[in-house]
């Protein structure tokens, strides 16, 4: 038994194995947003169709699920059903908001007619709100607690489980 070889070998391999074990759950697509932990940037947008004015800061007092999406985005299609269903179930306890990025009003309305809607859908015409939130690919969803602070961000289509686990974070801090 060559102890030096053993020790040197283990000194390299054991930390390496541990590192890989720790890294296994890592999702390189999940880039942490610097906005998490801060007050959500305020915006005033018009609701698609009705033209009603929605101001984010006026919604404080309950959790907000802010979902950036677009009709041309394939994963958003599947996600839409999850959000609509959850919004119907949770009712007035949680405010869902859809913000449509880089899209046309007619297309949004057609999409909502075909796929149903349960919460306000806002048209981010110039994309300014998406820029303020650092959106770099739809769908992206921000979870805002009752005090108006962003507590979580998720990139990619939400599943019912992911939606619930992220929503719990908004409750934990209120």
């Amino acid at each position: 038994m060559n102890r030096r070889v053993l020790l040197a070998g283990l000194a390299i391999t054991i930390p390496a194995i541990l590192l890989f074990v720790v890294s296994l759950g890592r999702d390189p697509h999940k880039v942490r947003s610097p906005l998490v932990g801060r007050v959500a940037p305020d915006f005033t947008l018009l609701q698609a169709g009705s033209g009603a004015v929605v101001k984010l800061s006026s919604l404080r007092g309950k959790p907000v699920v802010l979902n950036f999406w677009a009709t041309w985005c394939v994963p958003c299609f599947a996600e839409h059903g999850v959000l609509t269903e959850a919004s119907r179930q949770l009712g007035p306890n949680v405010q869902f908001l859809g913000v449509v990025y880089d899209d046309k009003e007619e297309k949004i309305l057609q999409f909502l007619r075909e796929n149903g809607s349960a919460y306000p859908t806002l048209n981010d015409g110039g994309g300014k709100t998406a820029i303020a939130y650092g959106v770099y690919g739809v769908p992206e969803t921000f979870f805002i607690d009752p005090s108006g602070k962003i507590v979580a961000k998720y990139e990619g289509p939400l599943t019912p489980q992911l939606l619930e686990s992220n929503l719990q974070k908004t409750a934990g801090r209120s």
């Binding site: 070889v5 053993l6 070998g9 391999t13 390496a16 296994l24």
Partner: peptide, 23 residues
Amino acid sequence: GPTILVFLAIALVWSVVLLATRI
């Protein structure tokens, strides 16, 4: 991923022990 990691870990430990005992 986890399965390959297990194999990598086995191969690493095997190699180190084999080297240490036989080199």
